[in-house]
């Protein structure tokens, strides 16, 4: 019975998450669909045909989006892990200030700083390059990654590391066998946050990438604003798909059941 309720709950959540996409899915196949018709009066695959034609440059955009978001997530974790550890485990002077500075990019609109960053990046030769875009994507992703990992470390008992070391583990072995297994649900969540935030950047990519770096949002937004629902819907689904796949793959890590070394477990 308990199991049944649980499955019903999961089904409801899945439905709640997927329901908004049903109209988009229908739009992507609709030729004429206007009020008050419940379903499109005419169907067409024009949107999909365009998305997969060479004219749409979808493969290039998809590849560059994946690469940028992938590398951004990895870098965010590499930078966010030590920061999160320090914030989660230690008390030090000015910690509140550091936390505030970490959060600042989520409060200040990225666009406000992006103009300045753009000028600096032009001078450094980073404008219009993929490296530049990845670096600027770190601005909005890092606060989330650091905070998620800080939360993870708040429940982490550092004594296990001392125990491992006293049993003869090298520092690398300690990281590999003790630290990483205990925080990896946090790593997955943080990585997903970073990926999805980077995946949906438009203005930062456009400004720093200068259009030479072509990502999916760039393709999508130029259609969304033109009112072409057919193509926009098809591109939207392609845009959303990786996020959903990621969510499904990582869903089992999100329960926290595998955290065996957390304090109080």
């Amino acid at each position: 019975m308990k199991r049944l309720t649980k499955y019903a709950g999961v089904a409801l959540i899945v439905l709640g998450v997927l329901a908004p996409f049903i109209p988009i899915l229908i739009w992507s196949f609709a030729r004429r669909w206007y009020f008050p018709a419940v379903l499109p009066t005419e169907w067409s695959i024009r949107g999909w045909a365009y998305a997969f034609s060479s004219a749409s440059r979808l493969p290039q955009a998809l590849w560059q989006s994946l690469l940028i978001s992938g590398v951004t997530s990895l870098l965010s974790i590499l930078i966010g892990l030590p920061a999160g550890r320090a914030l989660g485990l230690h008390k030090f002077r000015g910690k509140t200030l550091v936390e505030f500075l970490m959060l600042a990019p989520t409060i200040v609109p990225a666009f406000a700083v992006a103009m300045g960053i753009h000028v600096v990046f032009i001078r450094l030769g980073l404008a219009d390059t993929m490296i530049g875009v990845i670096l600027v994507h770190l601005v909005p992703t890092l606060p989330y990654v650091t905070l998620v990992l800080a939360g993870m470390f708040a429940n982490y008992d550092v004594n296990y590391e001392a125990q491992a070391r006293s049993l003869g583990a090298t520092p690398l072995q300690t990281i590999w066998y003790v630290l990483l297994p205990s925080i990896y649900p946090g790593l997955i969540v943080a990585g997903m946050f970073a990926f999805i935030i980077s995946w949906s950047q438009y203005i930062l990519t456009l400004l720093i990438g200068g259009g030479r770096v072509l990502t999916l949002p760039l393709l999508l937004f130029s259609f969304a604003s033109s009112g072409d629902n057919n193509v926009t819907a098809a591109l939207s689904i392609i845009f959303i798909a990786p996020a959903i796949v990621l969510l499904i793959i990582s869903a089992r890590y999100l329960t926290g059941r595998n955290v065996s070394l957390a304090r109080g477990n």
Binding site: M115, H118, V119, I122, R123, A127, D128, L206, L207, G210, G211, R212, L214, L218, L219, F221, S222, S225
Partner: peptide, 26 residues
């Protein structure tokens, strides 16, 4: 390069000029 609004490209060139990027614009 698909853009939403031509002003985006104009601002980009303007930004490059301000940054002194006079011969290798994007």
């Amino acid at each position: 390069v698909p853009i939403n609004d031509t002003a985006e490209a104009v601002n980009k060139v303007l930004g490059e000029k301000e940054a002194g990027q006079d011969d290798n614009g994007s």
